[in-house]
Amino acid sequence: MTPKYASCMATAFRSFTTITDMHFLLEPFAYDFMLRAFAAGILTAIIAPMIGIFLVTRRYSFMADTLAHVSLAGIAVGTLTGIHPIFAALGASAIAALAVEQLRSAKRVLGESALALFLSGGLALASVLLSLAKGNNVNLGSLLFGSITTVSVTDVTYVFALGVVVLVVILILYRQLFSISFDEELSLASGLNVGTINRILVLLAAVTVSLTMRIVGVLLVGALMIIPVVAAMQWKLSFLRTLLLAIAISLFSVVTGLLLSFYAGTASGGTIVLVAIACFLVGLGFNRR
């Protein structure tokens, strides 16, 4: 073999391995279901911590989980009645969100007790209704843990339409939400309409939950809204920077989690949340004091 021939062979081999690597890396994007999952995932990754930061800072982290469990009951109703799962989940979680807020603000029940009441109630109702809907081909596994293969074009459309609404409302109410999260009594005394803004926040949380659950599943919705925020808070930054970092962590978790779940064949929701927890641990490790 002449040196010139050997050199050509080596170049050709390197090109081949590069093409194979590229093919390996680009493979997820060759599937329509993955593109849909990325599209829906990226938007939910942006809005989930935007709501989450206002829930975490007012010690309301379990609101997202509660609404997710109530959403499951909504989906069960949707399965029985033929309503689209996103809207069925949205309807149920919106009603629950307003009811929890009403019980809390009227001081009839402690905030956390109201959440526990609706979390258990939602799950109980869902289990009864899903047992009635057994013949309707309900995939409980994908509902609970999320499944990227089940995200349809219609889902992506709804996620975008509702997601943009959530985004715009948060941007408009950002100052009011910040003020109320910091101190509700002070905000009330400053003349802010605390009751209405609180109701809007829980409704936005309900919308976000119903969108996010398609990607990460009912059991992990709360995680995507809360963990990136808690991870970002470890870096002790201003409120705005904490929010921006939380969005970055959430985006990183969703994109990395979706890719990992594609290659490893694992549940998308669980993989995304584990990546987010890894980000939290990194933040905790760097900021130990």
Binding site: T57, I172, L173, R175, Q176, F178, S179, S181, F182, D183, S187, S190, G191, L192, A232, M233, K236, L237, S238, F239, L240, T242
Partner: peptide, 25 residues
């Protein structure tokens, strides 16, 4: 004695005093 974990700078807190005057949006 307030919440020590709330992530906000002094300037952000003082700015929030303008919120009722700035209004929604």
């Amino acid at each position: 004695q307030g919440d020590s974990s709330f992530p906000a700078t002094v300037e952000e807190i003082v700015r929030s005093g303008r919120t009722p005057i700035i209004g929604i949006g």
